[in-house]
Amino acid sequence: MSLQDYTVTRSSQAARVAAVLGALALIVLVCAPWWAGRADMRLMGELFLYLALASLWNLMAGYAGLVSVGQQAFVGFGGYVLFALTMFGGLHPLAAIGLAGLLGALVSMPVAVLIFRLRGAYFAIGTWVIAEVFRLGFAQISALGGGSGSSLPVAIVKSLASKRAMRESISYWLALGAAVLVVGCVYLFLRSRKGLALTAIRDNELAAASLGIDIWRAKFTVYVVTSALTAMIGALIFLQKLRISPDAAFSVNDWTAFVIFIVVIGGIGTIEGPIIGTLVFFALRETLADLGTIYLIVLGLVAIVMMLRAPKGIWGLVRSRFDLQLFPLGYRVIAPKPEKEA
């Protein structure tokens, strides 16, 4: 066997099968308004938005090493921007969602400059401080209802579509679209030059710096992009909820704790992880949510055990057993099949 016989490839049989199955599943999901009930659609819509949040958090924590416990800052920010722009700016909700992303990016830049001065775990708590500042700040704005919050006026809700069934379908498609867009963006980003740089940083920060990768800038880019997308998801979340208040918008439990559990359980640092984690999380929630606080204690225990015993999550376990990669990121070296034993 000479060296020329080896092939290097990104693709694999499993990835091609996954792509076909994924496309089929997507078509089925797009058609959900014709086959699913209202409650199921609402649940799936929520699931897609959590998937998007989890994929974004995973990009930051699992690839860029930016472990944030304050992404609720941007979820709430996006929600409030949607309310402000539609109520006072007279914008169409869809335009407001787009603008929420843009404004989220703008706001995240000075925030990043400030909190990037904190390292590691202190960075994490720093992001939480920022979220608290946002929460307390928005609670001061009396036009948006101050501490008690406000509801989206009916006229604005109707501007999306006059019929309720149509509104619910649009809402659902937006959530599905957001999830596909985010997972797609994360995948394409990680395949790009910048994404490779990011993986290099994660694997070895010192070596990456010596190879001329500007670590600060790479992390800054990730932070701003994820913040912008998180703000858009936030706007979508509160377009579905139709009601916003500082405590709900900037809830560390809803928008960070659950998201972290999803990613840890599914598998941090992989694209597949958040998808699996979201499915597991919703399955647990639908079966155990009646238990209330016990359910949350169980979630906490599962996350701790997972982190200690299987730090790569469920997907890590699957991958180590079957050498699978559904979203082909890494290159694989394939040895030529021995034609005949000599």
Partner: peptide
Amino acid sequence: LLPPLLVTFGLSVILQNGLLE
């Protein structure tokens, strides 16, 4: 960095809900 951060985060959720219970 991740294990201590995420484990103490999980612990925080457990403590909070344990006290609530």
